[in-house]
């Protein structure tokens, strides 16, 4: 029983990271209508920045995460401006291939800068841990922090898109760029802003990922979590904030429980099998709404 609880909490923690990454995917997809396959690599860059600031500059973790957020935000805006914006009118396949190209570019750039030897994270946030059930159930501070960060980010983004002028403009752009422009909304700036937010989230996810699950940092660190978070976004219904949350959490829990009770090797296959089954019955994802036009 205690073991199950521990797995469940680990799953929720991992799922929280997936959810934060999935949000970035989902927001960019919702607004720019493109799959930014370089999103996972922004996570990796964020993680390297956290590592460098903490190890080489010996700054506290909070400063390191802030630096990573700033660098990734700028990187996201620059990538959008240089790689994706010129293709705004092109076929979506061209944009997709470009995104894969950007992904490889970032991985190779990281390899040039930091080399291919893994950087070992000790722990980003060493704070001690929570002991429950007479010390049988130990929940690390990283786990709590990850889940907490996830909740804060979800609430903040829900409020942002629901209540603020910029957030509402983002929703308008995601539905109909032309109509949004007729309202006076600067579509290019809105898309930039979306990439900025998505990339900032990726930086946070990078820090959380390295402190909870993946202590060895290499230039391809972002790929697998990126793909899984993309899966989570599709799973929950791409373009939807609660969808990213639910998709991420379910994916994390399925992965960890699968690892624990079925097979470590098969856990990833299990994750994708669940995705396929969900998409068979709900092609728009769990919370996705198929768009209907009214005449």
């Amino acid at each position: 029983m205690v073991a199950f609880l521990r797995y469940l909490i680990n799953g929720i923690s991992l799922g929280s990271v997936y959810a934060i990454i999935a949000l970035g995917y989902s927001m960019v997809y919702g607004i720019a209508k493109m799959l930014n396959f370089a999103h996972g690599d922004i996570i990796m860059i964020g993680a390297y920045i956290v590592y460098c600031v903490m190890v080489y500059l010996t700054m506290p973790p909070l400063i390191a995460v802030l630096c990573a957020v700033v660098v990734c935000t700028i990187l996201g805006i620059v990538i959008e401006r240089l790689a994706y914006k010129p293709l705004r009118q092109s076929a979506s396949l061209a944009v997709l291939i470009t995104a894969i190209g950007v992904s490889y570019f970032l991985q190779n750039a990281a390899m040039l800068i930091w080399g291919s030897n893994p950087k070992v994270f000790s722990s980003v946030f060493a704070l001690g841990s929570l002991r429950l059930l007479n010390g049988e159930l130990v929940i690390s501070s990283e786990t709590l922090l990850t889940i907490g960060a996830n909740i804060v980010i979800m609430v903040a983004l829900t409020l942002f898109t629901g209540k603020t002028k910029m957030g509402k403009a983002m929703r308008a752009v995601s539905e109909d760029k032309g109509a949004a422009e007729l309202m006076g909304i600067n579509v290019n700036r809105t898309i930039s802003m979306t990439f900025a937010i998505g990339s900032a989230l990726a930086a946070i996810a990078g820090a959380l990922l390295c402190s909870t699950t993946n202590p060895n940092l290499v230039p391809t660190t972002g790929s697998m979590p990126g793909i899984k978070a993309f899966t989570a976004a599709v799973f929950g219904g791409i373009g939807s904030i609660p969808g990213a949350l639910i998709g991420g959490l379910l994916l994390g829990v399925i992965e960890i429980l699968g690892k624990a009770y079925i097979s470590t090797e098969l856990s990833d296959a299990l994750v994708f099998a669940v995705l396929i089954i969900v998409l068979l019955f709900k092609p728009a994802g769990l919370l996705g709404k198929p768009m209907r036009e009214k005449v």
């Binding site: 002028k165 509402k168 403009a169 929703r171 308008a172 539905e175 109909d176 032309g178 109509a179 949004a180 007729l182 309202m183 006076g184 909304i185 709404k289 768009m291 009214k294």
Partner: peptide, 23 residues
């Protein structure tokens, strides 16, 4: 007011009006 109306289908009536006054 464009052809085919092109209102923001997933936003509320009030939010649509707010978008109209964006500038």
């Amino acid at each position: 007011c464009p052809e085919g109306r092109r209102i923001f289908q997933q936003m509320t009536v009030r939010e649509n009006l707010e978008m109209g006054a964006y500038s």
